[in-house]
């Protein structure tokens, strides 16, 4: 027995509400973030991730209030990402009650931000989010990094990018398959496995979960350290506890 594999419900937040999209578009309302966070906490979630997907800066301040409310009631690790552009943004989120901050687009635009934030606050609170998409050209299987919520190709090789982020001080990678996000057909297990074997820091698999076996596959086949899902939990299809029970049945060590 030892370290448990983590299940992390993800709450995409915009305008103060939790929403869920398909392939990063077509947003549907899923409820009040504080209420949802408490429900997942009661069900035994190991951590919670909030992604501020607000396109404009209009509602940016709302996420700070939400994090403050959640942090006063929920005593498990909270990760917040979306629109983090500076060390000052990291500081504000940590002060609001986030335990980790996830950096995505800004890490590509300014990799030094990852080094600076990690140097200032420690690698344990810096997550780099990588949105990866399969390169369909012939040749060996590889993935490209996308930014701006999946709208912009960068030309960067995803695995090489992950290694660079680790070297700069990322404490963890949140790895989302853009091909699978919202499809409910399971993680891109080859992508997950490629990252997990290339990196020494923990990898969170994300994108594509449609049933509980997908979560277990992420660990047993993808070798993920943690698995993240949104829609299967938001609409009451499955509870976090059911997910853990299934993973335990599949021989995975979980916190029950």
């Amino acid at each position: 027995m030892g370290l448990a594999k983590r299940i992390i419900p993800c709450l995409d937040v915009t305008a103060g509400r939790v929403v869920k999209g398909v392939n990063f578009v077509e947003l549907k309302d899923a409820g009040d973030p504080v209420e949802i966070a408490r429900r997942y906490d009661d069900q035994g979630a190991d951590e919670l991730t909030f992604l501020d997907i607000t396109a404009s800066s209009d509602d940016r301040g709302l996420i700070l209030h939400i994090i403050e409310s959640v942090a006063a009631q929920v005593f498990i690790p909270l990760t917040v990402g979306g629109g983090v552009r500076s060390v000052e943004d990291v500081r504000r989120l940590l002060n609001a009650g986030a335990d980790k901050v996830s950096i995505n687009t800004s890490a590509v635009q300014n990799p030094q931000l990852v080094a600076d934030a990690s140097g200032r606050y420690g690698a344990q609170c810096i997550v780099v989010a990588v949105d990866a998409k399969r390169v369909t050209r012939n040749g060996p299987l590889r993935w490209e990094v996308y930014t701006h919520g999946g709208r912009k190709a960068t030309g960067l090789d995803a695995v090489e990018w992950g290694k660079k982020m680790q070297a700069l001080g990322a404490g963890e990678i949140l790895l989302t398959s853009m091909d699978r996000d919202g499809t409910r057909i399971g993680f891109d297990l080859e992508l997950t496995s490629a990252f997990s074997s290339a990196l020494d820091i923990p990898v969170i698999a994300s994108g594509g979960v449609g049933n509980l076996d997908h979560l277990a596959d992420g660990v047993t086949i993808g070798h993920a350290d943690a698995v993240l899902a949104a829609s299967i939990f938001h609409y009451g299809e499955y509870t976090v506890r059911q997910a853990k029970e299934r993973m335990a049945q599949r021989g995975i060590e979980v916190r029950l």
Binding site: D46, Q124, P202
Partner: peptide, 22 residues
């Protein structure tokens, strides 16, 4: 120590040690 970060099943263990342990 990087050289010892392998479990009984031969799987690589990540550092930082992150998550819920007994």
């Amino acid at each position: 120590p990087a050289a010892r970060m392998v479990n009984a099943q031969g799987e690589k263990l990540k550092v930082p040690h992150m998550g819920w342990n007994e």
